[in-house]
Computed example of a mutant assay.
Amino acid sequence: MIKKIFLLIVLASLMSGCSGSDNPADNRAKIALKSTGDILIGAASPWAEKRNLLWEGISMAANEINQKGGLLGGRKISIVKGDDKGDLTTGQIVAQSFADNENVVAVLGHSSSYVSVPVSIMYQYYGLVMVSPLSTGYKLTTQGYPQIFRNIPSDRIFGEKLAEFCRKKGFNNVLIYHINDDYGRGQSNAFEISALSNGLTVLDRSSYDDLSSARSFREEIKFWQDNYEFDAIFLAGVMPKAAEFVVEARKMGVTVPIVGGDALDHPKLIEIAGSAAENVYAGSVFHPDFAYPAMQEFLEKFRKTYGKEPDIAATQGYEAMMVIAEGIKNAGCTVPADIAHALHSLKAFKGLTGDFSFDENGDVVGKPMIMKVVKGGKFHLVEN
């Protein structure tokens, strides 16, 4: 707690000259109380990423809200778009631009925990609400910031559920391979702890980084083949390296299932790995075959609007925009602290896969994790 307070004090001393106020959060709240125009919401992600349909989801939700008369007696949602390029330095610049705009009351983003975790202190200090649709890094909601939320399960939840899945499938002897960053370490730590409590044996654990080559993958795989008999590999990796690892594993004759989290739920897995992606399992919160009326209604609207299939980013962006709108409606104003209080008080928000709420840390509660597997070049829903 002392460290958190110190960081906030240092940030305040560095940034107060830019804000025009000794307390930028209070200043934002005063402006929000008087505001009667459009409600400004920031949206941050690497928009140029080929797979990223987050914008389409956010935009569709905002248009629906506006077409139904807006919020608070007719005020429209207006989205301020910021491209963080998936880069921390750029993400900090984008976050500062949102913070400097005192009419912005909330931010949807960022997509990567590598960006969202460090910039969350800025949003808290400047008094914005943040809802991250795709950041699973556990640190995001363990900092004690009451205005920071996510509508996707954390790495801890994914790791625990994936270990339970391995137990149910009889993958009793597993290897762990992860990217050496907060995402990979966090999800692998949770998986390993839960694996042990589920009676699984973790034979070995190793990591890679963005500079790892096909040769380094082959060396790791050869070591495993020479020393262990394993039922599955747990892969906490991101694209494109995770797909490249899958290719090398299959080339070397590894036929056991490869199991991973939400980062494997990505079109590039199949695009890069091709047939090597067969029998790769991914934990996720989205699949078009998910039998829930709200999801099917969303799919129909999305296809009609954009003429293409949505992905996990689209559904998460849509939900994040809708949940912010619900917070504003329940708060009866656009004061960020009041919106955050309303979000913490939500009991059963009607999401695309069922009702969910937020706990005291801002983590989503009640959102189911599903499993999907690549068969015949496509992701298929794994029935429980």
Score class of each variant (00 low, 15 high):
L134H: 02
F149C: 00
Q124G: 05
P133A: 01
A106C: 13
S154K: 05
N103C: 08
S135V: 08
V129E: 00
P146L: 07
S112Q: 13
I93W: 01
Q147W: 14
N103M: 11
P118Y: 13
S135H: 02
V117S: 02
T141E: 15
G137H: 02
M130N: 04
F158R: 01
Y125D: 01
S132G: 05
V131K: 05
Y114I: 12
I152P: 09
Q92G: 13
A95D: 04
I152T: 08
Q92S: 06
Q124Y: 07
V115E: 10
V107G: 10
N151R: 06
I93T: 12
V105W: 12
P118A: 15
P146N: 04
T136W: 14
S113N: 11
F158V: 07
P153K: 01
D100W: 14
D100Y: 08
M122A: 11
S97M: 06
Y114V: 08
S154H: 01
V129R: 03
T89D: 15
G127V: 14
I148Q: 08
Y114G: 15
V129S: 07
I148S: 01
Q143N: 06
L128G: 01
L128P: 00
L140M: 15
A95M: 07
V104H: 05
Y145L: 15
V94Q: 02
M130D: 03
Q92A: 14
R156E: 15
G144Y: 07
L140Y: 10
T136G: 09
N101C: 09
F98K: 00
V119T: 14
S116W: 11
A99G: 06
G91R: 02
F98T: 00
V104K: 09
I93D: 04
S112C: 04
V129C: 11
M122R: 04
V94I: 15
A95F: 10
S120F: 12
S154L: 03
F149L: 02
V115W: 09
I152M: 11
T89F: 09
V129T: 07
Y125W: 14
P118K: 14
V129A: 08
T89I: 10
Q96M: 15
V104A: 09
I157S: 15
S132D: 13
V115C: 02
R150K: 10
I121M: 07
V107N: 04
I157R: 13
Y125A: 01
L128T: 01
K139D: 14
D100A: 12
V117D: 06
V107D: 04
N103V: 12
G137M: 11
V119E: 10
D100K: 09
T89M: 13
S154R: 00
I121D: 13
S113M: 05
V105G: 01
M130H: 01
T136A: 06
T141D: 14
R150F: 11
T141L: 02
T136I: 07
V107P: 10
I157E: 15
